[in-house]
Structure formats: C-alpha cells, structure tokens
C-alpha cells in the first residue's frame, strides 16, 4: 500500500537524502528541510522502499505538502 510522506513544517528543501528504489527504515530521513536556520529531517513513518520523490532541492514546501511516496 503506497503511503504519502508529508512535510510537518513549512520550509525549503535543503537536501534530498534518498532516491526512488532506496530501502528506508522507520525514522530514516527521506529529505531534509531547512526552516529558520534549522535543518529538519522529514522521516519515513515506516520501513519500505522509496517510490517517488516529489520535490527538488531549493523548493519551498508548505506544511502538509507531499514530499515523497513510499511503496
């Protein structure tokens, strides 16, 4: 069952730390946002494979935006 990973905060995509096909464990950072001088990882809610990354580095995302999808 695919699962959307949403940003829990408004910020700018600082770093994309995974790519489609990567296996992640629950709690692994899928991307890293930067907001107000802080780097904030957006974590995988469960173990799985990354299906899709929906954002690019430098892009601004709003709280609740989908940033990636797990298989």
């Amino acid at each position: 069952m695919p699962e959307e990973i949403k940003a829990h905060i408004t910020g700018v995509v600082f770093q994309i730390t995974t790519k489609p096909g990567d296996r992640v464990a629950a709690g692994d950072a899928v991307i890293v946002l930067e907001s107000m001088k802080m780097e904030i990882p957006v974590e995988a809610p469960r173990a799985g494979a990354v299906k899709e990354i929906k954002v690019q580095e430098g892009q601004t995302v709003q709280e609740g935006d989908v940033v990636a999808v797990l298989e």
């Binding site: 829990h8 905060i9 408004t10 910020g11 907001s35 107000m36 802080m38 904030i40």
Partner: peptide
Amino acid sequence: YAEDPSKGFLPSPG
C-alpha cells in the same frame, strides 16, 4: 522565538 516548545522547538513560520 517563533518555535513550538511542545514539539521540540520546531520552527513555526506564519
């Protein structure tokens, strides 16, 4: 600061 102390001092823009 515009940060949420109940969420580990996560920034709170707005």
